[in-house]
């Protein structure tokens, strides 16, 4: 039983660390802000969640201490992670950060153009 619990904990924490490492590599390698936002808003969320689940299982199964605060932390990460990614990309686009040159299609530029004209922002 302890072996099973331990392997569960090791599995979750190593998956989480793997995803966090991938996030870091992505932040260095990817060419522009928008593609980096992908790496940061997805892999980081799942990575931290997996680490937290591993910690939760460790305290629950090994130390016999049920800690609901960790579960609440996972829920809050779930809610706030994507909102952060959305707000950062949106404000950068409106502030005029240029997408990477390999970007094949841009439906958003005319919409932002129109919005700025309407509100009288340069």
């Amino acid at each position: 039983m302890t072996i099973l619990a331990n392997s569960l904990i090791i599995f979750f924490i190593s998956i989480g660390v793997l995803f966090i490492v991938v996030t870091a590599i992505g932040l260095i390698r990817l060419p522009d802000l928008y593609t980096r936002a992908h790496a940061a808003s997805k892999s980081a969320t799942l990575g931290v969640m997996c680490v937290l689940i591993g910690v939760f299982f460790h305290f629950w199964l090994i130390e016999d201490h049920f800690n609901p605060r960790i579960l609440l932390g996972i829920l809050f990460l779930f809610i706030t992670g994507p909102v952060g990614g959305h707000i950062m990309t949106r404000s950068s686009y409106i502030a005029g950060v240029k997408p990477w040159k390999g970007t094949v299609r841009d439906d958003l530029a005319p919409e932002i153009e129109r919005m700025k004209k309407e509100q009288g922002i340069k």
Binding site: R29, L30, P99, D106, D107
Partner: peptide, 15 residues
């Protein structure tokens, strides 16, 4: 995408 040797993805904004 991140671990691919060369970056050959095609990002796009779509409606």
């Amino acid at each position: 995408v991140v671990l691919r040797p060369e970056l050959d993805m095609q990002p796009a904004f779509f409606a």
